[in-house]
């Protein structure tokens, strides 16, 4: 275990790197996901189709492939995309569809009569969604959104393979330098991930139970 305490600064910086990726990606992917979900339920067929295709393609593509695309190909083409930016971009583009699906299932959970009542008093699509549907969907949407963030936390580790300073990469480096303590190092890495994901999971369960009670 000493190997962790000896390298605690490195671990903490890696942890910071992971949190940064997580925070930035959530910041961008959540609004993007909301936009995709809104397009998916909009009255405009071409927007619906665009969103559907995008969501289905990305949800069914391995993250590593998306990363490779952004980190390698785009960097190769433009030559100037920093790895950090590429990583956040790739994670955002990959995660937004999952947010979108969580939001869409929440939207679909609101009785259709609510939207009809809103439209029948002359609300636009945006007003109907923003003033009537989403406020009612939000409680049931939060737990699945948290689950997407948990998956995203784990997915940030893929960025380590692309020279980004985050937990998983830190683990590899420290393990390489301490060949006799590989197991301890990766247990330490796991611990830091769990610090993020376990409380999130608890929170999701808690909210889910409260929503279930109020139904």
């Amino acid at each position: 275990m000493n190997v962790i305490f000896d390298n605690i600064d490195t671990f903490l910086r890696g942890f910071g790197g992971t949190l940064t990726l997580l925070g930035l990606t959530t910041l961008f992917a959540l609004p993007f996901g909301l936009l995709l979900a809104a397009m998916r339920v909009s009255p405009v067929a071409s927007l619906r189709a665009t969103s559907t295709v995008y969501v289905e393609v990305l949800r069914n593509t391995p993250l590593l492939l998306v990363f490779t695309f952004f980190s390698v190909i785009i960097t190769y083409i433009s030559g100037a995309l920093p790895f950090q930016v590429a990583a956040v971009l790739a994670l955002t583009i990959y995660t937004a569809p999952f947010f979108a699906e969580a939001i869409r299932s929440g939207i679909n959970g609101v009785p259709v009569g609510q939207a009809e009542a809103a439209r029948s008093i002359g609300m636009t699509f945006g007003q109907t969604l923003g003033l009537v549907i989403l406020p009612q969907a939000v409680r049931s949407v939060v737990p699945p959104l948290i689950n997407v963030i948990i998956a995203l936390t784990k997915n940030t580790s893929v960025a380590g393979a692309f020279f980004i300073f985050e937990l998983f990469n830190v683990g590899r480096e420290v393990a390489n330098a301490n060949g006799n303590a590989v197991v301890a190092v990766f247990l330490g890495v796991a611990f830091f991930y769990l610090i993020i994901t376990v409380p999130l999971g608890q929170l999701a369960d808690h909210i889910e139970r409260r929503v279930a009670v109020r139904r």
């Binding site: 009569g113 009809e116 029948s120 008093i121 609300m123």
Partner: peptide, 20 residues
């Protein structure tokens, strides 16, 4: 369409009051 709908009131069998 939204503008025109504002001029046409609708009352539903199941009320559909905004629950929130």
């Amino acid at each position: 369409l939204a503008k025109l709908r504002a001029d046409v009131g609708m009352v539903f069998q199941s009320f559909n009051l905004f629950a929130h």
